[in-house]
Amino acid sequence: MKALKVTGWILLVALVGIQFMPTDRNQSDLIPKTDFMVVNDVPKNIESIIKTSCYDCHSNNTDYPWYNKVQPVAWFLEDHVEHGKEELNFNEWDSYSSRRKNSKLKSIISQIEDDEMPLTSYTLIHRDARLSDSEKKIVLDWVSKLKDSL
């Protein structure tokens, strides 16, 4: 029992301790010239859907939830955003070559079609990021058109 108590204390101290460890926050006010919305002629409704449902993890600016103040949640999110940006960063859209743009658009279409994006773990808390069937359709139609125009 004593051992248990000691372990409990150690873990508690560790958990409190990690709260003081800094994380890189993915935040920027700057909208680069290469941003998807800047270089493409995106209709307002589609811009709003993509910004709400995709930009938190796929741009340089995340609208953080309150629980991001708590570790280890913050680390989890940090890792998540980092990976998301690596795959696709809408802020850097125009720095991709046509070949890469085509690949990214293809992946965007297939991920949305198959309900793989936005991630369930994300929409669970960000209810407004969920895509309804009609939203899915207008986004897919528009993105397909953009892809064909490349």
Binding site: K5, G8, L11, A14, L15, W75, F76, D79
Partner: peptide, 25 residues
């Protein structure tokens, strides 16, 4: 004593969750 057990469990889970995220790659 039961309390200790419960909180230990919670903390252990937190630590596991933490380590699980770091070996994703």
């Amino acid at each position: 004593m039961k309390k200790v057990k419960v909180s230990t469990g919670i903390l252990a889970m937190a630590v596991i969750a933490l380590s699980a995220t770091s070996c994703k790659d």
